Simulated assay, not measured.
Amino acid sequence: MIVENVLRPGFEALRDRFAAHFARDDEFRELGAALVVYRHGEKVVELYGGWQDDAASQPWGERTLTNIWSASKGVLALAIAQQVDTGVLDYDAPVARWWPEFAQAGKGSITLGQVMSHRAGLNGFSEPTTAQDLYDWELVTARLARQAPLWQPGSLVAYHGMTYGWLAGEVLRRATGLTPRDYIAAHIAAPLQADLALGVPAARAADVATIVPPQADGKAVELNSFAIHCVRNPVPDAAAANQPGWRSAQLPAVNVHASADGLARLYAALANGGRLDGATLLSPAGLARLVAPRGAAEDQMLGARQWAAGVALSLGGLYGPRADAFGHSGWGGSFGCADPASGRGIAYITRRMGSALNGDPRARGLVELATKM
């Protein structure tokens, strides 16, 4: 049963598409999911359905949280953009300005902008790295600081799936004195009254949906020698998201937990000049810097993808038909995006992960209708 908390006239087709996903007969049949759309600061759609858990004992509710995987990167991108906006950080300055140890092994000229746009040459680890290592912030950041680039920084774009979080997150920590978790709580979630957090707050453990890992991708792309670094040492394990260690760790690239409304509020602000309900997250100039294209629209792992400073632009209809739309998607289908032309902030979260590396069919269908003028 689909709950229609909010459904303004004109969005009935979006509701029907969302509901139809619960009746699919393939790997993309929803088990529990939510969708929220804001338009010019007003919530116009809030839909959810299914169950939080495998036993179907906890109905999905408006406060249900989901690990949103790489949609987390958009949250961290906003945090960095805020500090660029204040002049504390600078996309064009070397990372070593704030993190001196990072200059080791020939990395002294790598800029913050190259980190944010997946051009830093550090999309994996050189040293043997276990899944348990990823929970140790000091260990991982020290490892990245002493590591030589895996390819020439700035020469190409290759998605930094996990390492993006520690690279950008350590710059944020050095510049502000706050861990990424505390920064996001104080400077994004609190002013927005957005239900999202890095990791899971202890008081919210009962609200977290169980992740269902994806099936093997029947159309898997063979990764080249640049992209392969992203998915080995260690090999990603979707089931890890259900473990206490994952939920308590700070993995800024992949373990923000959010309700659909929480993530949608972030993008609702960005779709409306950086402001929502009296809270200002970014100035117009700061927002423009966040979404300015950086480098070629070609990613060695993801294919045609136009990166800005930590968010992807809507190349090929990724976030609807308008080129100025932007956002970030996560492994398995969840996403958040802003469509400034229509003033819409959109978020879709799901616990059943799809296998498609690019273009989850549920997400594609929803964003098409959610951005329709």
Rank of each mutant, 00 (worst) to 15 (best):
V140W: 00
V6N: 01
V140F: 06
P128K: 03
D92G: 14
N123Q: 12
A197L: 04
A33I: 11
V171S: 04
W98K: 08
D324L: 08
P201D: 04
S283G: 05
R181K: 14
G343I: 11
R352D: 02
V291T: 15
A239L: 00
C337S: 15
A227H: 06
L112Y: 05
W98D: 06
E4K: 10
G121P: 03
G106H: 01
D25W: 02
G41P: 03
A323T: 15
G345F: 00
I110N: 08
I2G: 03
Q58Y: 06
Y159R: 05
P234D: 10
E127P: 00
A370F: 01
R204D: 14
T130P: 00
N358M: 14
G303A: 08
L196C: 09
S109N: 14
A241F: 03
V212F: 03
A241V: 01
G330Y: 01
V200R: 08
A227I: 04
S248D: 09
S259R: 11
A158D: 12
E62I: 04
G218E: 14
N5R: 15
S248I: 02
G359L: 10
A288P: 04
G50D: 14
A269S: 07
A309F: 08
R29N: 07
G330K: 00
N358E: 13
Y48E: 12
V36L: 01
D25F: 03
T350R: 13
G274H: 13
A205K: 13
T179K: 04
S342C: 11
P128H: 06
A370G: 12
T66Y: 06
Y38R: 07
S283M: 11
S109T: 15
A296E: 15
A158L: 07
S70H: 09
Q250S: 07
E170A: 02
T130M: 00
A238P: 01
V3W: 04
A268M: 02
A96C: 11
F18M: 10
K219N: 14
A186F: 05
F326A: 04
P9G: 07
V37F: 03
L112I: 05
D54F: 04
S155L: 07
W98E: 06
R247F: 00
P340H: 12
R322C: 07
L251Q: 04
P284M: 14
L76T: 15
K43P: 07
A105Q: 14
A105S: 15
T66G: 05
M1L: 07
P201S: 08
V84S: 04
S155E: 14
L281C: 11
G330N: 13
S126H: 14
Q58N: 11
V157K: 15
L266H: 10
T66C: 09
A20Q: 15
A103Q: 15
G333L: 00
M353T: 08
H118R: 00
F326W: 14
W166E: 09
G310I: 11
A190G: 03
G286H: 10
A288S: 13
M353Q: 12
A168R: 05
L178S: 12
G61M: 08
R39M: 02
R119P: 00
Y38E: 06
L76D: 11
M1S: 12
